[in-house]
Amino acid sequence: MTSFRERRLPEPATPTPPVAPGLGRAIGAYQDAVVRLGGLDPVTTELVRLRCARQHQCFT
């Protein structure tokens, strides 16, 4: 059985450029913009962020 933190994609033998680098940058920009929104207080925003991370098994 795979543990949550076990890497699920094999490491490339040699450094490999990302398939869609613009997509990775766009997701980062989107997430940054969302957490900077001012309509919700910072503590509630952080609680939602942590809940989403747990749901997606994201430990970064």
């Binding site: 869609a20 613009g22 997509l23 940058r25 766009a26 997701i27 920009a29 989107y30 940054d32 913009a33 969302v34 900077r36 929104l37």
Partner: peptide
């Protein structure tokens, strides 16, 4: 501020 970045995201995906 989210509209702009999500529009970019949906072009890139």
């Amino acid at each position: 501020e989210v509209h702009e970045v999500i529009t970019t995201l949906h072009g890139e995906l």
